[in-house]
């Protein structure tokens, strides 16, 4: 079976077959062992040893922890990938992307307005938490749809602060893009 694994902005193709594993078109020897009763997996990939913590978050959605990083992976097999392409949902799922508050805090400043075109790294909203000001930046390119908060407002974790218009090219970026 061929899988398309989306991690951040990357989509990696992984083919699992009786003959072995192929990643991005390259054959590689892989062995995944489970530490029984735990989320720990010991992966040997081309002889290289990786310790990975896996957590299932939903159908095809996995959270992986390795080398100090928590990565979100969305795994689609080729059939689901084809169906999603046909229905125009894109890899990242439908709907406009949104900027969410990564923590509860106080909005100090909103740096964009509706209709603004933003580039990756551009500051969007400044939120104060732990007595530190944190500038939330655009992770990708896009156009601001709605601004849902104003300076002086307190926000909860994961509250939507800014919505973006759905990108025209759906295949380019995943939800983290």
């Amino acid at each position: 079976m061929r899988y398309f694994v989306t991690i951040g902005t990357r989509v990696l193709e992984v083919e699992l077959g009786p003959q072995g594993v192929r990643v991005e078109g390259e054959d590689v020897v892989a062995d995944l062992a489970e530490m029984d009763g735990t989320e720990v997996r010991a992966l040997l990939l081309g002889g290289k040893s990786h310790r990975i913590l896996v957590g299932r978050e939903g159908p095809g959605d996995w959270s992986l922890y390795l080398s100090g990083r928590r990565l979100q992976a969305r795994v689609l097999d080729e059939r689901r990938q084809a169906i999603q392409k046909l229905t125009g949902m894109g890899l990242g799922g439908g709907g406009p992307k949104a900027l969410r508050a990564p923590m509860p805090g106080l909005v100090i400043k909103v740096e964009v307005k509706e209709g603004d075109q933003v580039v990756p790294g551009q500051g969007l909203v400044i939120v104060e938490a732990m007595k530190m000001e944190n500038e939330l930046r655009a992770e990708g390119e896009g156009r601001v749809g709605r601004v849902l908060v104003a300076a002086g407002q307190t926000v909860e974790k994961d509250q939507v602060l800014v919505e973006f218009e759905a990108p025209e090219d759906h295949t380019e970026k995943g939800p983290e893009g």
Partner: peptide, 18 residues
């Protein structure tokens, strides 16, 4: 992310999904 980390994560994700 380092390419080898990404590949390891992708393979692990595909294997656990399968």
């Amino acid at each position: 992310e380092d390419e080898s980390i990404l590949r390891a994560a992708a393979v692990a994700a595909a294997l656990v999904e399968e």
